[in-house]
Design a protein around this nucleic acid. Sequence first.
DNA 1: ACTCTCGTTTGATCTGGGTCAAGGCCGACC
DNA 2: GGTCGGCCTTGACCCAGATCAAACGAGAGT
Lengths: 248, 248
Amino acid sequence: MHKLKTPELHVECSACPIRHRAVCSRCESDELSQLEEIKYYRNFQAGQTVVWSDDPMDFVGSVVSGVATLSQTMEDGRTQMVGLLLPSDFVGRPGRRGAAYDVTATSDLVMCCFRKKPFEKLMTETPHIAQRLLEMTLDELDAAREWMVVLGRKTAREKIASLLSIIARRYAVLEDRQSARSASFDLPLTREAMADYLGLTLETVSRQMSALKRDGTIILEGKRGIVVRDMSRLIEEAGDDSDGGFLV
Amino acid sequence: MHKLKTPELHVECSACPIRHRAVCSRCESDELSQLEEIKYYRNFQAGQTVVWSDDPMDFVGSVVSGVATLSQTMEDGRTQMVGLLLPSDFVGRPGRRGAAYDVTATSDLVMCCFRKKPFEKLMTETPHIAQRLLEMTLDELDAAREWMVVLGRKTAREKIASLLSIIARRYAVLEDRQSARSASFDLPLTREAMADYLGLTLETVSRQMSALKRDGTIILEGKRGIVVRDMSRLIEEAGDDSDGGFLV
DNA sequence: ACTCTCGTTTGATCTGGGTCAAGGCCGACC
DNA sequence: GGTCGGCCTTGACCCAGATCAAACGAGAGT
């Protein structure tokens, strides 16, 4: 986690995977300078759409701050979220035409972007960037598959607990508080968005949230604030196999 | 699709992605010879486990013929399939420790394998292999996400229709009969395996199969043979968004 | 031919979560 | 301060799919 010196923007790019994960891990300065040239930042407001599923999507990038979702909608309106993008997550499909999913900001969002063409060129010229991207894509694939278990086999209560523990864990990592027994964070999703993630209705989400509150597993502070008293309790509620893995 | 000259085995490797997709697409002979050295074939019988989810998994490879599944099981026994491996699909996680999922042969299976260490070495030395693998992993990710929609938002009938049309489409591609109006194939999965894929019970799967048969969408020939009268009808039953995409 | 096993089908009943409907809460805007 | 519009909560009822249970069919072994 380091400050970028893009003074016009004053953004702390704790996230940028290319710089932080792919490049910094090897620190080759010529790549850094190439990346600086094609890099730019974009801001979105809560609720705004970043790209539509069939837009050309001429960039790739990663989330610096805020939360975005990837979702897919059937013609009759049923929608399913297929990915949750938290700070440090990468978006984009190098070598692919369209976006394939709707990308929506669910809170105010800052993204660090690279124009796609030059990024792809850079990728073919710089072997370990492709390797890093493969690495990251494998992580996403693991997360997606883990999520298939949630969608296919868990009860409503377990689904909610799974979602909360994933988000809590992710923020714990970002804030380096991983060993804490309790956790608190702002849940940047509406009940409807949670429902779309979990394959439930918003009423069921609401009822299960109330139930978890009622028996003391979580505390709701205002509309979005969530306090988890005891992470291990929550993880147990999630019915988690494989110790809860490292979803999303 | 070309014959391999590995005479000891007499296998037609229509599948091997490294050779066929990554290498053949560029045909660089030095790589071919390197690959030949670390390549070997493995046969499995129907029902046999290829690797357990926490096994070290010292190889990567691809399916030459037959069908395998990737699945995950919760401690209480609920299981969810997270991937279906048909001929030409790649298995393995270069740069990863374990297998992460149970891999099981659901029919007699031939795999073309590469020992992992040398394969990884080759990968770092040969940029476009990493790129090809990234490509393939992105495809898998798309398939997994498409499947999340099926699991999260489709009805039992739509789920069955989705599964059948995915498999039909995959075999159509393999056999190069893509434009055919009808399709027929052996469904190499038990009702239980289908249920595990679809997040249903085997009874529900059986009932929905009977229903699809009853109203003439499919014909069952013996226990495993399936004939689809009219693919477009089946795809419609699948409730498919995005024209049915290119799942799995 | 008989029977054992394994997968499958079908029926009867139950239930978790969906659906429909009515308020409640709170910040924004007049 | 009032009311309007977004969310969220809660209740009452319903239904798709789960669960429980029985029986069927086909291949394999004796």
